[in-house]
Simulated assay, not measured.
Amino acid sequence: MTLNVTHLERTAATLEQALLAIDRHPESSDSVLFDLYRNAAIKSFELSLETAGKLLRKALKAFEASPRSVDALVFNDVLRHAGKHGVLSSAEVERWLAYRANRNSTAHDYGAGFANDTLQLLPAYLQDVRNLAAVLQKVFDASA
């Protein structure tokens, strides 16, 4: 299977730049720039999470006898299967499940407090998404 993780790496780079910009423009009562960068960080988080899910689904097809069975999995089951096949460690699966739960909440809660809570997850998430990109690239290279 020939596939690469360039788009996932790009979303991680975008997230990193948004987080760096937030550090340069701390929250204040009139900081539109803080809101702009916070929103960019959250959107990058959402995009990278969806991209990671799609790539994990493709990677799992290398391990499963029936690729259609992988297509039928919901996102959380994709994460669990990635753990079962050693693509993610059990600790990573738990963190990714938490990221997914947070993402599901961001889609329904637009409050600034919740958005700021999400920001607290993003530095660890950034490291996890970069680690996942490296692991996925190895899976794709090995199956090519």
Results as ranks from 00 to 15, higher is better:
76 N>S: 09
102 N>E: 02
98 A>E: 05
99 Y>V: 08
82 A>K: 10
90 S>N: 00
79 L>N: 03
87 V>Y: 00
95 R>D: 14
79 L>Y: 05
89 S>Q: 02
92 E>I: 02
102 N>R: 12
82 A>V: 14
83 G>M: 06
84 K>P: 08
79 L>P: 13
78 V>R: 05
86 G>S: 11
95 R>E: 13
81 H>C: 07
85 H>W: 02
77 D>H: 06
92 E>A: 15
97 L>D: 02
98 A>V: 07
100 R>S: 11
99 Y>Q: 09
78 V>K: 08
91 A>E: 09
80 R>C: 12
94 E>W: 00
75 F>I: 15
81 H>K: 11
79 L>S: 09
90 S>I: 08
86 G>Q: 06
94 E>V: 04
85 H>V: 15
97 L>K: 05
89 S>R: 04
79 L>G: 08
91 A>M: 07
91 A>D: 09
75 F>D: 12
95 R>N: 13
79 L>Q: 02
102 N>D: 02
81 H>P: 01
83 G>C: 05
76 N>C: 06
98 A>D: 02
91 A>R: 03
85 H>G: 14
84 K>L: 11
95 R>M: 05
88 L>G: 01
80 R>T: 14
76 N>I: 05
97 L>C: 09
93 V>Q: 07
103 R>E: 02
102 N>I: 07
76 N>G: 03
94 E>C: 05
87 V>S: 04
98 A>H: 01
81 H>E: 09
82 A>N: 12
77 D>P: 01
103 R>W: 12
91 A>H: 02
